[in-house]
Nucleic acid binder design. Structure first.
Lengths: 331, 331
DNA sequence: TTGTACGCGTTATCAC
DNA sequence: GTGATAACGCGTACAA
């Protein structure tokens, strides 16, 4: 093993094994047209010198980093971690590296991120971030960066998208409940939480308007603690209802506040978590939730992007169904 | 906005603004010695042409990618997501990009990861992965890659480490409980879950041996569902105990199994979660847990690495205290 | 202040 | 099969 020498270059390998750069390069890339004998010789000196090709130089020469950018609002959500997990798995088998670009849910950061993605020379990018809009995506596209966009209504060249069918499902669930269930339905509105939630909320509201039913909306913070505290207040006056919450932890806040206010779940208070994770079945009573396999979404996104990069055919639009999982937080 | 042209290079900018490559380069890097007038001219053509410097070429020329590698076992754990969150925040303010390297808890993958980190030309790496051992780290070090290693007993040049004091805390908690509490203590053993858990388990066992007390160990799977099922069985015969579980979801499995077996928590069954996250206070009864601010750990790791990269002084070893948070799953 | 020329570590297109 | 040599896009002494 080498001890703190400078990086060994292809040139040194060439000299040490008495061949030219070109030959070494051929050996590295398993390029044909090289005698088994010289190949072996080169490989030996490569091992002896501890040579590792520089992906940087390779990338510059070939115009291909094997690097794809992942644009997300934050790494801190469970459902994003799930997606990330699918991405890393698939990227590994396909031989890509993942570079993270986080917008922190700020438009300002999003603009910076667009710049960074461009300068970073990624081969392509997967965008799962509501902060980026049509113009940002167009900009990325204009720099010829193949894109897979999750949960966003955009189109362009070298651009595929992945959609969730949450809206439909929410319409169904809402309509069904209005027919059978008895309680007034409430939506937990999060101030700045992206298009998906906005669309779901709209679907919820429209369903009620169409049915001529009354509904309620509560504005909440994206924090378990705060939402729990808020609902302790709310449950002083509102003693029943069917609540739609964006994430498991917010749904749990409602449930816990209800229980701590002497209400029964689901008899008095029913709760539906819109983006269910494994915690839905850990929390008691277990959360009824909509569920999408985000690990699958992640790996699919990488697969699609990879096809783009290899000029294979890609379905331009893939849709993921959410399933309604009935557990114990609803009747 | 450009439409699908090829990448604009510094050369085209130079020609278009009637200066030399060097001058453009100076403008990009805010290098002094360039007239305000020409600077403005160059900046205008940069904007007009939509030129973005190639980080690749810059990196090759300067021998600095502004890229740091993050080695983790998986992106799918909440506590790792928390750490990642701290890292992305700090990296953003410091101007670094994060590249993910995931070992999937496999030694085989770990070896591949070492290779990839080396060829990827990262400026440095943060290693939070028990799969990498002393020799892997040494290899990385021999390629002059500055390292911040979390939760691992290694040393070397350009290598700083971050430690957790979990062992100490577990010794304390265990000893305290044996004095005051009455139940037999059990440790949930996870087959292949890294050094941290091993050390904690050892601390747990040694405490008991020193005190001449009896203890138990249950082997479990790293899955809520399986562990829940297992404990339904266990609670048929074992009707009380104090259980130490690695993560919140496993602790929740024990709690839920206990409750579903007609046992009371914490009167019959007490549970301590070793790596507490926000879910510790969401689950009911709320989990007593040890807690470390992993977001802080993540940002600190990036800060330390960044100091290395700038040849500033770094404390070689930083320790994070875990705090014992008493909630409702213990007496 | 600005320009020239070389180097960074590879790949790729030629010849031989 | 193998070897020069020109790219790839940029930084930077050194010269002017």
């Amino acid at each position: 093993m080498k001890n703190m020498k400078d990086r060994v270059t292809i040139y040194e390998v060439a000299v040490a094994s008495g061949v030219s750069l070109a030959t070494v390069s051929r050996v590295i890339n398993n390029n044909s047209n090289v005698t088994a004998k010289t190949k072996k010789r080169v490989e030996e000196t490569i091992a002896r010198l501890g040579y590792k090709p520089s992906r940087l130089a390779q990338a510059l020469a070939t115009n291909k980093t094997t690097n794809i950018g992942i644009v997300i609002p934050s790494a801190n959500y469970v459902y994003i971690a799930n997606m990330l997990n699918g991405m890393t798995d698939e990227a590994k088998t396909l031989g890509y590296q993942l570079t993270l670009f986080v917008t922190n849910k700020s438009k300002e950061d999003a603009l910076q991120v667009v710049e960074k993605v461009i300068t970073s020379h990624v081969d392509g990018a997967i965008i799962f971030d509501d902060e980026l809009d049509q113009s940002d995506i167009a900009k990325l596209s204009s720099y010829k960066i193949p894109l897979v966009v999750v949960n966003n209504e955009v189109q362009g060249e070298k651009l595929a998208s992945i959609h969730f069918d949450y809206e439909e499902k929410v319409r169904e669930v809402t309509a069904d409940y209005m027919k059978k269930g008895g309680k007034k339905m409430y939506f937990l509105h999060l101030h700045h939480s992206g298009r998906l939630l906005e669309r779901i909320e709209r679907a919820f509201i429209e369903s009620h308007i169409q049915a001529g039913k009354n509904y309620g909306v509560f504005s909440v913070e994206d924090s378990y603690r705060q939402t729990y505290a808020d609902f302790l207040e709310i449950f002083k006056s509102t003693r029943s209802g069917y609540f739609l919450a964006y994430r498991d932890s917010l749904a749990a806040a409602v449930i816990n506040a209800a229980l701590d206010s002497g209400l029964r779940v689901p008899e008095d208070v029913e709760v539906l978590s819109l983006i269910g994770t494994k915690y839905a079945s850990i929390i008691r009573p277990q959360l009824t939730s909509l569920h999408i396999d985000l690990k699958d979404v992640g790996s699919t996104a990488v697969t699609m992007l990879s096809k783009f990069l290899n000029d294979e055919d890609v379905e331009q639009d893939k849709s993921f169904d959410s399933t309604f999982v009935k557990r114990d937080s609803t009747i």
